[in-house]
Amino acid sequence: MVKKILNIDTPFLREVGEISHFTARFFKEITKPKQEYEEFINQCFWIGYKTLTLVGITAFIMGLVLTIQSRPTLVEFGAESLLPSMVSVSLIREIAPVITALICAGKIGSGIGAELGSMRVTEQIDAMEVSGTNPFKYLVVTRVMAATLMVPVLSSIANAISLYGGFLGVNIRGHVSWHLYWFQVFDALSFGDVVPSLIKTFFFGFAIGVIGCYKGYNSKKGTEGVGRSATTAVIVSSLLIFIIDLIAVQITDLLGLT
């Protein structure tokens, strides 16, 4: 359509158009019976549970390091008591959701891209079509739905673990009781901090699932194409995460939730 109207045809616009068409096909297929619930549960297990350890370790270190690094600056201004509040707002609003999404883009996006790419170049997807199975619904819809659901779950768990890491970081050179720390954490947080942060993680997961499936499903050129699909899936989904985050911040600012 862009080519016909503006007489412009570039690889970037062609890629955007193909991804948009792929996304539209996803919404079309998701409304048709029958749904592959068993495969969906299986993908939730591999995408969610198998990524939990990596996300948990990263979140813990993230909360611990942020607290330790922030203390000297607050001490200079005599505001050391604000450390739990500052750390909680920083982690919940931006750091934990974005870092978790980037980890998922690296692990989940590349995994989906490589898996579907291998199935494409070995003609397994073509065999599914010949046998009467809908490969798009079985392979793509289930993975996109699982990624959309599991990334917010992983992000919520990362929030809790990173805040616990912050508690340990606060008590390395000081002493704040368990009850006082969590009172300051929840007192600093508001509706505008938690809900928009959670909502945007659904879009993060959707972007990771769509890009990973698109790159793998349309993989070409044999084994070289499989590696390229996995690599580009990570790059494009990571870029989309930052773009979605920027849009989310602008919307929450316009709504007065910041």
Rank of each mutant, 00 (worst) to 15 (best):
K50E: 15
F26P: 01
P33W: 11
E76Q: 13
R71T: 04
V16P: 01
E36L: 02
L66F: 14
L13E: 06
Q69H: 09
S70W: 03
L52G: 04
Q69A: 12
K50G: 00
E39H: 05
L74F: 09
Q69D: 12
K34C: 07
Q43F: 05
E76P: 00
K50M: 13
A24S: 13
P33I: 10
V75C: 00
R25E: 12
T67N: 00
L52H: 09
T51N: 11
I47W: 01
T10Q: 07
T73I: 09
E15T: 14
Q35D: 13
I57W: 03
K34S: 14
I19E: 05
L82S: 10
F12Q: 12
C44V: 13
P11Y: 03
L64D: 04
H21C: 10
T23K: 00
K50V: 11
Q69W: 00
F77E: 02
G56H: 01
G17E: 13
G56V: 10
A79I: 02
G63A: 03
G63I: 04
E39Q: 12
L54G: 15
A79K: 07
V65G: 03
I19A: 01
A79D: 05
E38D: 14
Y37N: 09
I19P: 06
S81H: 12
R14G: 05
T67I: 03
C44A: 12
T10R: 07
Q69E: 11
F60S: 07
T23L: 11
F60W: 08
S81R: 15
V75R: 10
I19Q: 08
F12A: 15
L82V: 00
K28I: 11
E15F: 15
E18I: 02
S81Y: 14
R71V: 00
I61R: 00
I57Q: 01
P72T: 09
T23Q: 01
G17Q: 09
D9V: 05
Q43A: 11
L52K: 07
F40E: 04
Q35Y: 15
I61M: 14
I61Q: 09
F12E: 11
L64M: 09
K34T: 14
L13A: 08
I19G: 01
W46D: 10
F45L: 12
A59D: 08
E80F: 06
W46Q: 12
F26K: 00
L52D: 03
V55Y: 04
I19T: 08
F27T: 03
F45D: 10
S70H: 02
R71F: 06
I68Q: 09
E18C: 03
A59F: 05
F60T: 07
L52E: 07
H21M: 12
F22R: 06
Y37W: 15
Q43I: 03
K32L: 15
E38G: 15
Y49R: 04
R71W: 07
E39V: 14
G63R: 04
F12P: 05
T58K: 03
E36I: 02
G78D: 03
Q43M: 14
I68V: 14
F77W: 10
R71N: 05
A79G: 06
E80I: 11
S70K: 03
L66C: 08
E76I: 06
G48W: 10
I41E: 04
W46E: 10
L52P: 05
I30H: 01
V75S: 07
L82N: 11
I61W: 11
E15R: 11
I61L: 15
F26W: 04
